[in-house]
Amino acid sequence: MQVTWGNVTVTFSNPEEAKKYAEKVARKLGGQVELHNGQFRIK
């Protein structure tokens, strides 16, 4: 499962870890987490 924002992509084998990481990054950037085609995207 991947977490992407800007031109950065981070890949996780565990979807739960990916979700936690995406939420943490979104909080830092003041963005929203979207699940899109099996990727968490931060907008």
Rank of each mutant, 00 (worst) to 15 (best):
G6I: 04
K24E: 13
Q32H: 13
F12W: 03
E34M: 07
K20W: 11
E17Y: 10
F12A: 01
Q2P: 04
K24S: 12
Y21V: 04
Q2F: 07
V8A: 05
W5P: 00
Y21Q: 02
R41P: 01
L29G: 03
G30V: 04
G30K: 08
V8I: 14
E23W: 12
L29M: 09
Q2E: 09
T11E: 08
T11S: 12
K24C: 15
K24A: 14
K20Y: 08
L35Q: 07
N37A: 06
Q39H: 13
E34K: 04
N37S: 05
V10N: 03
Q32W: 15
K20I: 12
E23S: 07
Q32P: 03
A18C: 05
K24Y: 15
G38E: 04
K28A: 14
A26C: 06
Q2K: 14
R27W: 08
M1H: 13
T11F: 14
S13W: 08
T4D: 01
Q32F: 14
L35M: 13
Q39M: 10
R27C: 15
E17W: 09
A18D: 00
A26K: 02
M1K: 07
F12Q: 00
E34L: 07
W5Y: 09
Q32G: 05
R27L: 12
V33R: 01
V25Y: 04
G6T: 03
G31L: 10
V8D: 03
E16V: 13
G38R: 05
E23Q: 10
S13V: 09
E16W: 12
G30H: 09
A22V: 04
V3K: 01
V10S: 03
T9D: 02
E23H: 11
E17N: 09
T9C: 15
E23L: 11
Q2W: 06
L29C: 13
K20G: 07
L29I: 14
L29K: 03
V25Q: 05
N14D: 12
I42G: 01
R27T: 08
Q32L: 12
Q39Y: 07
R41M: 14
A22E: 00
E23I: 11
V25W: 11
V33Y: 06
H36W: 13
Q2D: 08
E17I: 11
N37M: 06
T11K: 09
V25F: 05
K20T: 10
N37V: 03
N37W: 03
E34A: 05
L35H: 06
T4F: 07
Q32T: 15
N7P: 08
L35E: 09
W5E: 01
Q39D: 06
R41W: 15
E34N: 04
V10H: 07
G6C: 15
M1V: 14
S13F: 09
G30M: 06
K19N: 04
A18V: 02
E16P: 04
H36L: 13
T4V: 15
V25E: 02
G31Q: 05
F12G: 00
G30W: 05
H36Y: 12
P15G: 09
K24W: 15
Q2A: 11
E17S: 12
W5D: 02
T9A: 05
E34H: 07
Q39K: 08
G30E: 04
G38Y: 04
G38V: 02
F40E: 01
W5V: 11
N14G: 06
R41H: 14
K19F: 14
V3L: 03
E16I: 13
I42K: 01
K43M: 13
P15K: 13
Q32Y: 15
N14Y: 05
G31C: 12
K28M: 14
L35S: 06
Y21H: 03
K24V: 10
W5H: 07
V25L: 14
N7A: 08
G6D: 13
S13G: 09
G31R: 05
R41Q: 11
E34W: 07
V3G: 01
N14Q: 07
N7Y: 09
Q39N: 12
A26E: 00
E16C: 15
Q2N: 09
F40P: 01
I42Q: 01
I42D: 01
V10L: 12
L29V: 12
T11R: 10
K24H: 13
P15Y: 15
R27A: 12
P15M: 14
K24T: 10
M1W: 15
W5M: 05
N37F: 05
H36E: 12
L29A: 05
K20H: 10
V3I: 04
L35A: 06
K19H: 08
P15L: 12
K28H: 13
K19W: 13
K28F: 14
I42A: 01
E23A: 08
N14L: 07
K24N: 09
N14A: 07
G31W: 08
N37E: 10
H36M: 11
T4I: 14
Q32D: 06
P15D: 05
L29E: 03
Q2Y: 07
Q39E: 12
E34F: 10
Q39A: 12
V10Q: 05
V25D: 00
K24L: 13
K43E: 07
E23Y: 14
V10G: 01
R27Q: 11
E16K: 09
S13C: 15
T9M: 07
S13H: 10
K28E: 11
K28S: 09
K19M: 11
K20R: 14
G30D: 05
R27I: 09
K20L: 13
I42W: 03
R41L: 15
R27D: 07
I42M: 01
K19V: 06
K20N: 10
G30Q: 07
V10F: 09
G38A: 03
H36R: 10
V10T: 05
S13P: 10
F12S: 00
T11Q: 09
L35F: 14
K43V: 15
A26W: 03
E23G: 05
A26V: 04
Q39L: 06
F40R: 01
N37L: 07
K43P: 05
G38Q: 04
T11A: 08
G6W: 12
A22M: 04
V33Q: 01
T4P: 01
V8Q: 08
P15T: 13
I42H: 02
N14P: 02
Q32I: 15
G31S: 07
L29D: 02
L29F: 11
